[in-house]
């Protein structure tokens, strides 16, 4: 009893340095950074906080374009990754042991490879004289090499590659939560495997996959490396604009404004989706079933 008390106290005190570190080295600078978005960057006279920067950013066509590109890539990436990851995770959970082990090793090794290495890999694969174009030419699908790189599609492909292993790992417990007998009951009633997946498995689990999809949206929208390497400067997502403002133009106010806009938009999307799907309610119902 006393031992438990002391160790709890030790734990509480032990958390303190970490909390202080977090407050001083992350929270305060971040707030300071965001605060700078409230002060006009073009005028040196300090006439108090205003939303001038936001008005200017939201009035700028390039910023709005960039926001649309960012969200478009993020949403497409999340949806495609969810679908792919779902099928893969299903095989990890329900497939034979050797297959699930193989998939796990592949997923983990892909997670360990750095984002830069993976993006550069795609550059080689998708290059004008790369293997994919060679294949398309050899098959006679196209007459001359097609542009596969430095566009939105290349960035999306790269981002899907980044997200699939993470989403797959997150989906494994979601799929495991459905008892095997649930599927067997459907088979016994004459339902095919594929339709059982559609009529039983998906309706039972998709609500729990929504938050995972949202995490993928957020992570993708904030990703810098892959759009930078696979977009070839032509896919200007918000993180690239922020980096340019902060490190090329030294315009911290604009960088902060764009960062704030990105965060707010994403949180707003998350709220709408979560309220709309009422996913908590269904989790409760599943618990009773």
């Amino acid at each position: 009893m006393r031992g438990a008390m002391t160790s709890r106290r030790v734990l509480r005190i032990g958390v303190l340095p970490l909390a202080l570190f977090y407050v001083f080295f992350f929270l305060l600078p971040a707030l300071q950074f965001l605060r700078s978005s409230l002060y006009d960057s073009s005028e040196s006279t300090d006439d108090g906080a205003s939303l001038t920067n936001y008005r200017r950013a939201l009035g700028s066509e390039s910023v709005l374009d960039s926001l649309a590109t960012t969200l478009g890539i993020a949403l497409v990436t999340a949806v495609v990754s969810l679908l792919l990851a779902y099928l893969i995770a299903y095989h990890v959970v329900r497939g034979p042991a050797w297959l699930s082990r193989l998939i796990m090793v592949a997923a983990l090794s892909s997670l360990f490879a750095s984002a830069i290495a993976r993006a550069l890999g795609w550059r080689v694969l998708l290059a004008d004289s790369g293997p994919l174009n060679d294949l398309l030419l050899a098959l006679g699908v196209v007459d001359e090499p097609v542009r596969l790189i430095n566009n939105t599609i290349a960035v999306t492909v790269g981002m899907v590659h980044v997200q699939v292993p993470i989403i797959m790992l997150a989906l494994i417990p979601v799929i495991e939560a459905v008892p095997r007998e649930m599927e067997r009951a459907a088979y016994g009633l004459g339902e095919s495997r594929w339709r059982t997946f559609l009529r039983v498995h998906l309706p039972l689990t998709w609500m729990n996959a929504v938050p995972i999809g949202l995490i993928a949206v957020m992570a993708t929208a904030a990703y810098f490396t892959t759009p930078a390497l696979l977009g070839g400067g032509r896919v200007l997502v918000l993180p690239i604009l922020i980096q340019q403002a902060a490190q090329v133009l030294f315009d911290y106010a604009t960088a902060a404004t764009l960062a704030a806009i990105l965060s707010i938009v994403i949180v707003a999307i998350a709220c709408v989706v979560l309220v709309f799907t009422r996913w908590r309610r269904t989790i409760r119902e599943r618990g009773h079933a």
């Binding site: 007998e181 009951a185 119902e285």
Partner: peptide, 10 residues
């Protein structure tokens, strides 16, 4: 088949 855990579709 009636399974022990029933597995009604919830």
């Amino acid at each position: 088949m009636v399974f022990q855990s029933l597995v009604l579709f919830p």
